[in-house]
Write a protein that binds this DNA or RNA. Sequence first.
DNA 1: AACGAAATGTAGCGAATGCTACAATAAAAA
DNA 2: TTTTTATTGTAGCATTCGCTACATTTCGTT
Lengths: 188, 188
Amino acid sequence: MTATKPKMSKETLLPLLANHVLEHGMGGASLRPLAKAAGTSDRMLIYHFGNKEQLVTDLLEYIADVYSKALEMAMGDERAKTRQECLARVLAYGREPSVQPFMVLWWEIVAGSARGLPGYKQAAQAMLAKQLEWLEGQMPADDPDPAGGARYLLTLMEGSLMLSTVGHARTAREGLLASDLAGNTRGG
Amino acid sequence: MTATKPKMSKETLLPLLANHVLEHGMGGASLRPLAKAAGTSDRMLIYHFGNKEQLVTDLLEYIADVYSKALEMAMGDERAKTRQECLARVLAYGREPSVQPFMVLWWEIVAGSARGLPGYKQAAQAMLAKQLEWLEGQMPADDPDPAGGARYLLTLMEGSLMLSTVGHARTAREGLLASDLAGNTRGG
DNA sequence: AACGAAATGTAGCGAATGCTACAATAAAAA
DNA sequence: TTTTTATTGTAGCATTCGCTACATTTCGTT
């Protein structure tokens, strides 16, 4: 029995759709491939979501939620000792293979936001808000300005991630070395 | 006579195609709309570029070149007095209405790079390299580390632009205020 | 069991996609 | 002028797109 018929609804569909989108991107997210990935038909996707725009909106919202949950899981209890360590942690997290699909999708979401596509900006804002919340929770306990510092690190980190994405990882690395966060205790 | 027949070639086509793409994005860049914007037919686009992939590659290369030229035009002769002023200049430039279409397109190029689409990463690298070159030329003359500083500012600036793009302009602003570049001489 | 509503399959529509076959014209070379 | 060669127009093909009409099945309720 290959049959798997545990009903079907937005809730059961979204994880499967998200998997497909994380692997193949938003650009190639047309109804038939999506349906195939979810074990259904385009017909049923329209049935459940109304139209594609709503599907995309719901899907992005779901993905943002999954991303938030994943961040919470990865959120260690202990704070970092320094801002530098804080940044190192979050950059290391972004380099993990398991979050790579998120990273690739992330820039599509940013692009969609910039272009004004419906649903994109909300998802981007939600994901960024969570990221910021995470960073604030990681800031050193003795930091003089945790809120501002977290925003500073977020800016720096997103810039670094982008540079790395487009093949300027070296530029990013050298940029961080020239920041006030550099571990410039050479020869230690 | 509405006829405009100054021959037709890649060179004469690319500017028109670029205009269309800057306005409507890469996503909606299909042959017929592109051709219409350039006053031709899809038939001729294929004739001149071979196929769409090559057209996109050539177009991105051309756009990167135009962007570089525009940067050179905007490149003032005098250097900034401080890193802070340097960053302020470049951020102001990115906020100009005339470069807005570039900004929107930029994130699509980044997304394409992340996704590995042919031609995107080259264009992104070229544009970033130029941006970096520009920044280096703007660095204060007495800066202890112009190369590193420029990379640091580039990282910070790209992060800021992204945050602003997705509606976190406030986060970006507060992040910069918490950086070592902040003009923290309040009440001056 | 009978009924009404929710869920699903099958088939297809009109539009858009990248691209091609074929023929006609325009320009250049002989 | 004749003969290539480069350029362009006209039609169309096969595929994919989002979506719909219609019929059928499944299911909870009575």
